[in-house]
């Protein structure tokens, strides 16, 4: 199969069989992913698995050795100017012009995107407000803390009002409140129709932010088998009862498969409706349930399972 018109899909970001080596190090061996407009996709994997390299290739900064990349249907190799107008990229490396103020930084960035001066300034001021840096608008960026620089970097990525957002470790260094705000912001951006690809290893946070997850290991994106694992992890419910023995007896008698835990048990339910019925049934059996809910972060469970397989 070669790159033909059929490769052009509605996906805002699509990569197929992408690879890239640095000398003898194969940073990305075989990566395939798609991000649809209006959705948030997580890129998850251990340190050094090629997440950043893949992001750089998607951003059009690095040429893949093989494979096809399309951003909003455009090939960054041949039409990088168009790709750049469509992409907002937040790098994992924090960098800012020390001597310039936050507002100057954003204004100059906006002019790099060929916005008129006043337009860039207005947009910059608006974005500073959005990331809660308005009070620093006229102060040099060197006074910013790590988390504040991270927020400035996010504002910078949004200067050109991109259709596609690539966020590389955006939650690094953010305080808890900023993390919650980041989550809300990312969901809002997706609701505006932007396609968001976000890499992070704070998995519990991604759980509430993302629609899809792509796992990467040793330069490869893991396909359907890992998707099944995520789906399975999403179905896991932890039940803890005051009378533990009665809980396990009830489950065993009814032939319900469950994972035995040190405290309570983990059962699998299809959807929220099924969860309700399961809880009602357990109560009816006289089990004194005091905790009933999803068994932790689905992404985290999958990640751990993947890591274990690797060993």
């Amino acid at each position: 199969m070669t790159a033909t018109a059929t490769d052009v899909t509605t996906a805002a970001v699509s990569a197929r069989g992408v690879s890239r080596a640095f000398g003898s190090v194969q940073a990305v061996a075989d990566a395939t992913l798609e991000v649809q407009p209006g959705t948030v996709t997580a890129l998850i994997g251990p340190n050094g698995c090629g997440k950043t390299t893949l992001m750089l290739m998607l951003a059009g900064l690095l040429r893949p050795d093989a494979g096809e990349i399309r951003i909003a249907g455009i090939d960054p190799r041949t039409d990088s100017a168009a790709v750049r107008t469509a992409i907002g990229w937040m790098p994992d490396q924090l960098g800012s012009w020390d001597n310039l103020t936050c507002l100057q930084t954003l204004t100059l960035m906006g002019r790099g995107y060929r916005l008129a001066k006043h337009e860039a300034r207005e947009r910059g001021a608006g974005l500073l407000e959005m990331v809660h840096l308005s009070e620093f608008a006229d102060r040099p960026t060197r006074v910013l803390s790590r988390g504040q620089k991270q927020r400035l970097s996010l504002a910078r990525a949004l200067m050109n009002d991109p259709d596609v957002l690539l966020l590389d470790e955006p939650a690094n260094g953010l305080d808890p409140r900023s993390r919650v705000e980041l989550r809300t912001l990312v969901r809002e951006l997706a609701a505006d129709g932007k396609a968001v690809l976000v890499s992070s290893h704070v998995l519990a946070e991604l759980d509430e932010m993302v629609d899809e997850a792509v796992f990467m290991s040793k330069g490869r994106t893991l396909g359907d088998e890992i998707a099944d694992k995520v789906a399975d992890a999403r179905r896991r419910y932890r039940v803890v009862a005051l009378n533990d023995a009665a809980l396990k007896a009830a489950l065993t008698d009814a032939g319900v498969p469950f994972d035995e835990e040190t405290v309570g048990a983990v059962i699998r339910v299809g959807d929220e409706d099924e969860a309700f019925h399961a809880l009602a049934w357990l109560m009816g059996q006289g089990v004194r349930v005091h905790r009933f809910g999803p068994a932790g972060s689905a992404l985290e469970q999958t990640y751990m399972a993947m890591e274990e397989e690797r060993r």
Binding site: T9, T10, D30, D163
Partner: peptide, 24 residues
Amino acid sequence: LVDQNPAPADAPEPAPASSAVPRA
């Protein structure tokens, strides 16, 4: 490389890249 990573079965119909942004 592409064959080893087939596109998802429910890949959407071929559609023109839709974007209102003027393209360079």
